[in-house]
């Protein structure tokens, strides 16, 4: 096969935009958690589990974690694109990263709703 340089995958904008939007979501969540901890100096196990027994809080946390995983996927893929040149190895790493992130998602749900 001729080793031609091929570009023109016609994607990139959605991921770039998603990385920015997920970042905003993560900032909001982080500020909320930081604010909550600062406003409750008596923070202990009871208060913490109390906060997370709220369904809205659980959903908000899951949303935060999904944003984190999507954000991480785009970032890790960008790094792999720069440093791993052989297409086969790169694809294998992509699959491993996606599987790991899917596992984390399942695990997150288990933790949040198993509390």
């Amino acid at each position: 096969m001729v080793d031609r340089i091929v570009t023109g995958a016609h994607y990139g904008l959605r991921d770039w935009l998603a990385q920015r939007l997920t970042a905003v979501l993560m900032v909001i969540y982080t500020l909320f958690i930081a604010g909550y901890v600062l406003l409750h100096p008596d923070m202990g196990y009871d208060r913490w589990t109390g906060l997370f027994s709220n369904q809205v809080m659980r959903s908000f946390t899951l949303l935060f974690l999904l944003a984190l995983y999507y954000h991480a996927w785009i970032g890790v893929r960008d790094i792999v694109m720069d440093y791993i040149k052989p297409a086969g190895i790169r694809l294998a790493i992509y699959v491993l990263v996606i599987l790991a992130l899917l596992l984390y998602t399942i695990w997150s749900v288990q933790i949040l709703w198993g509390m």
Binding site: T7, A9, H10, Y11, G12, L13, D15, M81, D82
Partner: peptide
């Protein structure tokens, strides 16, 4: 824009 809509051609800029 089509020509640049690519993870390498444009979106390598960080």
């Amino acid at each position: 824009l089509d020509n640049l809509e690519d993870p390498y051609r444009l979106f390598r800029c960080h």
